[in-house]
Simulated assay, not measured.
Amino acid sequence: MSFNRGLFVVSLISMVIGCFFQPGISRGEAQETMEDYKIGAGDVFKIDVWKEPELSLEASVVRIDGKITFPLLDDLQASGLTTMDLKAVIEKRLSDFVEAPQVTVTLISPGSQRYYILGEVNETGEYPIGKKLTILQAFAIAKGFTEWASKKEIILFRRENGQERIIRVNYKDITKGDFSNNVFIQADDTIIVP
């Protein structure tokens, strides 16, 4: 194996390891983020009410107004809640009709969890976030860069607390081992590769 090829393999292994071990983000924080999944418009849930099949729903879609329609209960606000919060709301409201209801809420499709990538990548578009995803992994999903991509001037637009935030990303720094630019993707992020 030539020296350059060996250096490439070492760099590639470092990038992969960096995807899983982000500086400044502990495993506990990553797990907490997954457990605190907030329901949004477009999410699809299976809702089971134990021993009440006529009240169970195979696929309940969160509408654009953030609500779902549930038998006997009409519209329920779901957006902004966790699955455990929604379970508690349904159980409380159903207790007027069913003795000690036991509800299970299962996320089938995280339709609200999407990001967008535009510009000089091979496959621009909207992509689902099915797991914890870094910007490096997002580039891989978009099939990499075109030959004209400006890899030092990538911009990530993010909305946080009602404010637009711009995060500048230098892909070349990531490939050199500086994983501080390899940020986690959040719902509704827009990545632009000039």
Rank of each mutant, 00 (worst) to 15 (best):
S79P: 15
R158F: 00
F145S: 02
G162M: 07
Y115N: 10
A30V: 01
A100G: 07
K92G: 13
K172R: 15
V193G: 04
D85L: 10
A30N: 05
T106M: 13
I155N: 11
G28V: 15
A41G: 10
K151I: 11
M15T: 14
K38I: 02
V193N: 07
V98R: 00
M34Q: 11
T104A: 10
G28C: 09
G28N: 12
L76R: 14
G24N: 03
L118C: 07
D65A: 06
D85H: 13
R114P: 09
G42D: 02
L107Q: 04
T82H: 10
I90G: 00
Y37H: 06
I192A: 15
P110M: 00
I155D: 04
I68M: 01
R158D: 00
E147H: 05
C19G: 14
A140V: 09
Q186E: 12
M84A: 13
Q102M: 08
A140E: 12
L81T: 06
V98D: 01
L86W: 00
K87V: 01
E153C: 00
L76H: 04
P101S: 08
Y116F: 14
P128R: 09
N182P: 07
G6C: 11
R63C: 02
R5K: 08
E29F: 06
N161C: 12
T33G: 12
S112G: 15
T106F: 07
R93L: 07
G162F: 00
K92V: 06
L7H: 10
D48V: 13
S150P: 02
L81I: 02
F139W: 09
